[in-house]
Design a protein around this nucleic acid. Structure first.
Lengths: 343, 343
DNA sequence: GTGAAAGCGCTAACAG
DNA sequence: CTGTTAGCGCTTTCAC
């Protein structure tokens, strides 16, 4: 295909059958030391590269898994992917990464393409409700931060503790004296967002606030620009009553931050701000931003563990695997107390 | 393989031969409206997903290309990848992305794996000198910011204008009055770095500086931490003479920035700073950082154009395709003049 | 110890 | 218009 020789060529050169070459390559079956050497020499001399596609076709199993993420330019997702890949590689699996660009149509296309490429399983990160379940059927799949439509099937769900995350973020704002706390989140029907909302409400209730303490702004897109524009519009209107904002993603928090400062609000003195994900930019911002840290190393490890369990024939766990989160407190809620340092 | 049916199953259900099914699926050859309907119905009912692996094995061409990057958590690389993928998708190609983690051994492994997966071509972004040429042989390859070892072969090289980038960055520092300009760069033998060095020297010479005006610090790793630690060590030593620093990557610039501010230097008053890549964090930094912007959209487009040329049978361009760069001037060289805004 | 042969899912002549 | 057949590169019985 790409100028490569095949075992057939090798067998001819070595004067043995292709079966023997196959045995030598895979080190199974019997063959003499002598033929082994002859075959291996030819392989080395020609830089032979085995064709995994053909092998997969024959053995009916490929050791590669597709990873689907909504945005490859988002540092949080890529750090998570990095951890997932690391764990898969160590188990001898290949990974194929693909980007849905936050678009449901693209999402469906990419999932379908992964299935066509014969991946042995799928990791599906925080996608929308694209109704992909019918496409993946028996393909073992781990969903991260997204509950599958149907529970039947080889599905497994892993999630960081989003309720706890929403709770910690909101409680921090309350502890810092915020009276009117705004939740800035996504309109998307992703469990991650609805759970962070749940945590937000829980913290308010636990702090003795009434039902009218709940203030939510929903965004159509989860990105800096949308957050910036929406907040700017909010600030341009007369009555901006909020002294605390919990944004369910760091990029949203950064959008808030810039809209607020440009409207003359100082952070954290007048408005306190909490983000989510702990991407590195939150530490470098003019006022470092308090944010909820997700333990991606544990998540990555868990993803691979669970997938290997399913691949090993065990049935998928029915419960969601929850990974704890913690709050990284910085100046956007507490002021210039802690040293600015990046680790 | 993954619980999927094959055209054989379809042919049985439809009461036609597999050849007919194949024809219907690929819409070539002749078949009656009636059989078409019967086949398509079965396909839809069963959510049939064609096996591209088998198809590729048979047709001896897969429409997918491997993309190899040194660091998937680096926003610059991923924005470039995003552009490359977008262009490939629009031409009906799939892409497989993989990460070398800046490690040459990993790099070789990943390239080999791509070859085994039967990709039809490769895009190799800014890799080290891992001597991969013998592994890819006739595989059409575009190198970005890295000159191939051997010029024979279907290689093509695309690069942003790194000499110009180094020149613009250094000239900016000189124009802002810097007397002693330090170049902070990588030890790696990558053309991108050596060319930025070249531009740095060119600007110094053109500005009438003597040979002793050249000051370079080489780093083993291209990341925030290494830059931060190296600069801290430099600042701890007695005589820090620099009033201008050109870092050949934004992350290095950020490392510098924090080391400098922690040592009590103010930017840009005492030391001016220029980075490279224009990642978004440079705009959000407490003091927004002047940086060289690479036009990744043009680069992505060019990559695909060139690869399709080669794939189309034309021979690879021998010259390097150069994409212009420009400087994004911010506060780290000019002070608080411009409005802080993100676009 | 080694070879012959079948077959993974699919396409592309070649017949009819 | 449709079926038969060979074969892509590889593995794996089953003989010898």
């Amino acid at each position: 295909m790409n100028g490569n020789i095949s075992i057939k060529d090798i067998s001819k050169q070595a004067g043995v059958s292709i079966a023997t070459v196959s045995r030598v390559i895979n080190k199974n079956g019997r063959y003499s030391k002598e033929t082994e050497k002859r075959v291996m020499d030819i392989i080395r001399k020609n830089n032979y590269v085995p064709n995994l596609v053909a092998k997969g076709l024959r053995t009916q199993k490929m050791k590669n898994v597709g990873i689907i993420v909504p945005d490859i330019t988002n540092e949080f997702f890529m750090k998570l992917v990095y951890e997932i890949e690391k764990n898969f590689f160590s188990k001898g699996y290949e990974t194929f990464l693909c980007n849905t660009d936050e678009d449901e149509e693209t999402e469906r296309k990419r999932v379908r393409m992964m299935a066509m490429q014969n991946v042995c399983s799928l990791v599906y990160v925080s996608g929308g409700m694209s109704n992909i379940e019918h496409m993946i059927k028996d393909l073992p799949t781990v969903f991260i931060d997204r509950i599958p439509d149907e529970t039947k099937g080889n599905y497994c769900m892993i999630s960081s503790d989003n309720i706890q995350g929403g709770f910690l973020a909101t409680r921090e704002l309350m502890e810092c004296g915020c009276e009117n706390i705004l939740l800035l989140t996504s309109r998307k029907k992703i469990s991650a967002y609805s759970e962070r909302f749940e945590g937000y409400v829980k913290a308010l209730v636990q702090g003795g606030r009434e039902a009218d303490a709940i203030h939510v702004v929903y965004l159509d897109q989860v990105n800096y620009r949308t957050a910036y524009e929406t907040m700017s519009r909010l600030l341009d209107a007369e009555d901006f009553i909020y002294d605390g904002i919990f944004a369910t993603s760091d990029w949203l928090a950064l959008g808030c931050y810039n809209a607020l400062t440009e409207h003359g609000y100082s952070i954290p003195e007048e408005v306190k701000l909490v983000g989510y994900d702990d991407i590195s930019i939150t530490q470098f911002n003019a006022v470092p931003i308090t944010t909820v840290h997700q333990q991606i190393d544990i998540m990555g490890k868990t993803v691979v563990e669970q997938l290997l369990r399913i691949l090993g024939g065990e049935s998928a766990l029915q419960e969601v695997v929850k990974v704890p989160v913690y709050l990284n407190v910085r100046e956007s809620t507490r002021g210039r107390k802690m040293p600015k340092k990046y680790e």
